[in-house]
Simulated scan of single mutants.
Amino acid sequence: MQKSTFLSAWIVSVLFLSINFSQAQSVSKEDGFKRLFNGENLDGWVGNKESYRAENGMIVIDPQGGGGGNLYTEKEYGNFILHFEFQLTPGANNGLGIHAPLEGDAAYVGKELQILDNRAKKYAELEVYQYHGSVYGVIPARRGFLNPVGEWNKQTVIVNHPKIQVILNGETILQGDYLEASKEGTLDHKEHPGLERSSGHIGFLGHGDVVHFRNIRIKELK
């Protein structure tokens, strides 16, 4: 009986330590991260606050027939790790702007990472640099790692100018140097002066479709 009691206590102790270790790891991974979205309103953001709104802990873009425009952080960021989750609707198209000014097309005057429902029939003949996660016009991303439409996706973007990494649902879909990649010209054969920028605003770039975002957190790097 005593042996059984000792064994039970030992198992409980091991489980307790395992749970605490797991929790400690979780806290450690979040050290230094700050919320970009408070879950309640769009304080700290600028731009189109008509098509974009805070709802049930999410940023929702609902352009209702319009282009949707852009929503940017008030603050500018240089090197960073950005975590966020997104939920696509059928055929949805959006973008993540980085190092962007508040005026002009962020895909060129800053950089745009595609946020896109790749599986939609209307996107059957995209250029390689237009698929989800790609640095638009510059570096193509690997495909096949988006969750089905309607499910949430987790994405991490790590920027250490001029290097960038995009991790989608635990898989690295893009890793490269956008200045090196464009040295002999960009894939879309257009000028991208924003590739030289090492800081700017982070934003969601509307293209007329409904998309949901949540759990947006950032850690600035030196």
Rank of each mutant, 00 (worst) to 15 (best):
E112H: 06
N93Q: 01
V128N: 14
F84W: 09
K121D: 14
F37K: 02
L82S: 04
T156K: 10
E74C: 10
K163S: 13
V138E: 03
S199Y: 12
K34C: 12
G32N: 08
K219A: 10
R142F: 09
K49H: 01
L82T: 02
R143A: 10
G137Q: 07
D177C: 09
V166G: 09
L187V: 10
T156Y: 04
L168S: 06
G65Q: 03
G170D: 08
F145I: 04
P90V: 09
D117N: 02
V12L: 13
V159S: 03
I59T: 07
A120C: 03
E112I: 07
T89G: 05
P140M: 11
E171I: 06
V149M: 07
I59S: 09
E196T: 15
Q165F: 02
K163A: 13
V109K: 01
V138T: 07
V14C: 08
N147W: 02
G32M: 01
A100Q: 03
N20R: 12
R143W: 06
A54K: 01
W152R: 05
N94I: 00
D188Q: 12
D43M: 11
Q114S: 02
W152Q: 01
D188I: 11
G91P: 09
F213Y: 15
N70L: 00
K75C: 00
K122A: 09
L205W: 06
P162I: 05
T89A: 11
N160P: 06
D31C: 09
L36T: 01
G206T: 03
H83C: 01
E74W: 00
Q25A: 13
E184A: 15
G95P: 04
P101V: 06
G133F: 04
K29N: 15
E125L: 05
K3W: 08
G91R: 04
V109S: 08
G44M: 07
K154A: 11
R142L: 15
P162M: 02
R142V: 09
E103P: 02
V138L: 00
Y72N: 04
N56Y: 04
K122I: 11
K122Y: 10
W10V: 14
S51R: 00
V149W: 01
Y131H: 07
V128Q: 11
H132T: 09
D62G: 06
V159D: 02
K222G: 15
L7Q: 01
G78L: 09
L179Q: 11
Q64D: 09
K163Q: 13
Q23E: 14
F84M: 13
V211Y: 02
S22T: 12
I11R: 06
I19C: 05
L36D: 07
I173C: 06
S13T: 12
K34Q: 13
A24T: 13
Y123C: 03
T186G: 10
E125A: 09
Q155M: 15
G150D: 03
K121N: 12
S4H: 01
A181K: 08
D62Q: 12
N93H: 02
P193H: 10
E171W: 00
L221G: 00
T186F: 08
E74I: 05
G200D: 06
A124S: 14
L113K: 07
N70R: 01
E171H: 15
E103F: 07
L113V: 11
F6A: 15
H192W: 12
E196Y: 15
I202L: 15
A92E: 05
I202F: 10
